[in-house]
C-alpha cells in the first residue's frame, strides 16, 4: 500500500537560552531540549497510526513537526510522494487544506470571540475560497456530520460543553476534506462518557471519509482501540512499531511491556503484585548515554549503557530498538 506520509530521521531540538561566549570558544554544543531524536515511520493510505507515550516522549512535538507547524531541525517528511520538509512558507500554506489537526483542549483551541460558523469556515477561507454561500453550505453539512445542529452556527464557543466544542474542532479540521488528520490527545480533556461519544464519532468519520490519521495519546487503551498500527515513543525516539494486535499479543521492547503492565485494569481480581517499574522519565536536555531506557530497564546489560540500539526489523511491519533483539 502506498504511504501517504513518510517520515525519516526527524529531529527537533529546542535551543535553551543563548550560547555563552565560553561555549562558543570551546566549541561546546548549545544546550537543547531533545524533543525528537531521529524518528522514522510511514503511514499508509486509509490507515490510522497510533502514537503512544508518556509526558516528554515527544509525541506532541511530532504532531507539530509532521504538519510543519514547527520547523524540523533535520530529517525528511514526504507527503504524497513529495518532499515537503523545506518548502517555502507560501507552499506550506497551500498544503494545509490537505493536512489538518485536532487539538487536545476544546476550550483554548477555539477563538472565544468568533462565532462557530467562522471558526469552522476558517480552513476554507484560507484556501482563498470567496463564495460565501458555498462556504456556509459546507460548514453546515460538516456540523451536521459531527452531530451538531445548524443553529449552533451563530453561537459562541463558551455556550457549548467540552464534548460539543471538540466536535466543533473536528468539523473545522474536516471542512476542507483533508487527506491526513493528526489527532493530538483529542479526548484526554473529556469525561469518560463524552470520550466514548467522540471516539465513536471519529471512528465513523474515519471510515466514511476514508481518512488517513495519526492518533496521539498517552492512554494506551484508547490508542489501541482507535489505531491499526502503533508506534511507541520514549524520550524522543520510537522504541517499537507494530500492528496493534501484534503489539498487544507480544510486546517486545521492555518499555512497551512496562507501559502495558502499568495500565490499570478494570478487574480487581487482576491486581498486580509489586511491580518492577522503577524510576522516571529521563531529562530531555541530557538524556542518558546508550539506550535511553537503560536506567529503568529490568533487562539492561553492559552494552545498553554505552551503545545506542538501532532499529531492528523483526518482520515486514515490526521494528524494535533494543539490544535484546539485535542479530
Amino acid at each position: 500500500m502506498q504511504s501517504l506520509l513518510s517520515v525519516k530521521d526527524l529531529v527537533k531540538h529546542y535551543a535553551i537560552g543563548e550560547a555563552s561566549a565560553l561555549d562558543k570558544l570551546f566549541g561546546r554544543p548549545q544546550k537543547a531540549v531533545h524533543a525528537l531524536d531521529g524518528v522514522s515511520f510511514d503511514v499508509a493510505q486509509n490507515e490510522t497510526l497510533g502514537v503512544v507515550g508518556e509526558s516528554g516522549c515527544g509525541k506532541t512535538t511530532l504532531a507539530r513537526a509532521v504538519l510543519l507547524l514547527t520547523p524540523p531541525t533535520s530529517g525528511t517528511i514526504m507527503f504524497e510522494g513529495t518532499d515537503i520538509t523545506r518548502l517555502p512558507k507560501q507552499d506550506v500554506r497551500k498544503l494545509r487544506s490537505k493536512m489538518q489537526i485536532i487539538f487536545q483542549d476544546p476550550i483554548s483551541s477555539l477563538d472565544p470571540r468568533m462565532r462557530v460558523r467562522d471558526i469552522v469556515a476558517e480552513p476554507l477561507v484560507a484556501t482563498g475560497e470567496k463564495n460565501r454561500s458555498l462556504i456556509m453550505d459546507r460548514v453546515r453539512s460538516m456540523l451536521e456530520k459531527v452531530g451538531l445542529s445548524s443553529d449552533t452556527m451563530n453561537r459562541f464557543p463558551h455556550q457549548f460543553s467540552g464534548g460539543q466544542r471538540q466536535r466543533i474542532g473536528i468539523a473545522r479540521a474536516l471542512v476542507c476534506n483533508p487527506e491526513l488528520l493528526v489527532l493530538d490527545e483529542p479526548t484526554s480533556a473529556l469525561d469518560a462518557s463524552i470520550q466514548a461519544q467522540v471516539l465513536s464519532l471519529l471512528r465513523r468519520l474515519e471510515k466514511d471519509l476514508g481518512l488517513t490519521s495519526i492518533f496521539i495519546s498517552h492512554n494506551i487503551s484508547v490508542v489501541c482501540y482507535m489505531s491499526d498500527s502503533i508506534v511507541v515513543m520514549y524520550a524522543g525516539e520510537i522504541v517499537e512499531a507494530a500492528p496493534t494486535r501484534d503489539l498487544l499479543a507480544k510486546p517486545l521492547h521492555p518499555y512497551t511491556e512496562t507501559l502495558l503492565a502499568s495500565v490499570p485494569r478494570t478487574d480487581p481480581s487482576q491486581r498486580r503484585p509489586e511491580e518492577k517499574i522503577v524510576g522516571e522519565q529521563p531529562s530531555p536536555v541530557s538524556p542518558p548515554p546508550g539506550c535511553r531506557f537503560h536506567p529503568r530497564c529490568p533487562y539492561a546489560f553492559e552494552k545498553c549503557r554505552s551503545v545506542k540500539p538501532g532499529q531492528v526489523t523483526i518482520a515486514a511491519d515490526r521494528r524494535v530498538a533494543c539490544h535484546l533483539f539485535a542479530k
Partner: peptide, 19 residues
C-alpha cells in the same frame, strides 16, 4: 491554541493578526 489552530488552518500571519 486558537492561534496555533489558525496557522494549522492555513492562514497567513497577516490574516491571523487581523482575524
Amino acid at each position: 491554541q486558537y492561534i496555533e489552530a489558525a496557522h494549522a488552518a492555513g492562514l497567513s500571519e497577516f490574516q491571523v493578526v487581523i482575524r
